[in-house]
Every structure is written in structure tokens, then in C-alpha cells.
Amino acid sequence: VRQEELAAARAALHDLMTGKRVATVQKDGRRVEFTATSVSDLKKYIAELEVQTGM
């Protein structure tokens, strides 16, 4: 499950970095929206997932 969450989070980051205004991911069973202003929060979430998956 964590691998899927990590892939979704990375895709969301890619979307935001390429101009999409809002990206949505499932985080702990709930839907979370990230915007360009919350990229740093999304990067932290990705880092947490990488630690949890041993990457």
C-alpha cells in the first residue's frame, strides 16, 4: 500500500511542478489536496513515505 501512496504522491508533485493548480492524494485513508503553495508539505509527505518503504 505504501508503494502505491508513494507513487501517487510523486505523481501529484509532478503535476504541481508542471503547472497543475491542485493535486489530490489519499493520505491515511482520507483525501488531501495540495497546491503550489503546499509543495514543501507534499515533499515532506513523500520523504516520510520513502522512509516507511525503505527507499
Rank of each mutant, 00 (worst) to 15 (best):
Q52N: 11
T24C: 13
E48G: 05
D41A: 09
R10G: 02
Y45F: 09
V22Y: 06
D41W: 05
L13N: 00
A47Y: 11
V32L: 12
A8L: 12
A8S: 12
A12K: 01
A8G: 07
H14A: 11
T35C: 09
M55S: 14
G54R: 09
G29C: 04
T53D: 11
A9G: 02
A7F: 08
Q52T: 11
T35I: 05
E33F: 05
R10E: 04
A23W: 00
V32R: 05
D41I: 07
E4Y: 09
R2M: 12
Q26R: 07
D41G: 05
L49N: 01
V22K: 08
T24W: 05
R31C: 12
K44I: 10
T37P: 04
L6D: 01
I46A: 01
V39Y: 03
A36I: 14
I46L: 05
Q52V: 10
F34R: 03
K44S: 10
V51T: 13
V1S: 14
G19A: 02
R10C: 08
L16M: 03
K44D: 12
A9I: 04
L42E: 01
A36N: 10
G54Q: 09
V22L: 08
E50S: 06
A8W: 07
G29Q: 04
S38T: 14
V39N: 01
A9C: 06
G54T: 06
A23C: 06
A9F: 04
R10H: 07
V51C: 13
T53H: 11
L13R: 00
E33V: 08
L42Y: 00
T24A: 13
L13E: 01
V51Q: 15
L49E: 00
E4W: 13
V39W: 04
A8H: 07
Q3H: 13
T53K: 06
L42H: 00
I46Y: 00
S40A: 13
D41R: 04
H14T: 08
H14M: 09
D28G: 09
Q3T: 13
A7L: 12
A11E: 10
S38A: 08
D15F: 04
S40D: 15
V32S: 04
F34D: 03
L16S: 01
F34H: 04
Q26Y: 10
Q52I: 14
G29E: 04
E5Q: 11
A47I: 08
D28Q: 06
E50H: 04
A11Y: 02
R31E: 15
A23S: 06
E50P: 00
R30Y: 12
V39H: 03
A36H: 13
A47N: 09
T24L: 07
V22R: 06
Q3M: 14
A23D: 03
A7K: 12
K44C: 09
R2E: 12
A7Q: 12
L6S: 01
F34P: 03
V32M: 11
S38N: 15
T24E: 12
Y45Q: 03
M55F: 04
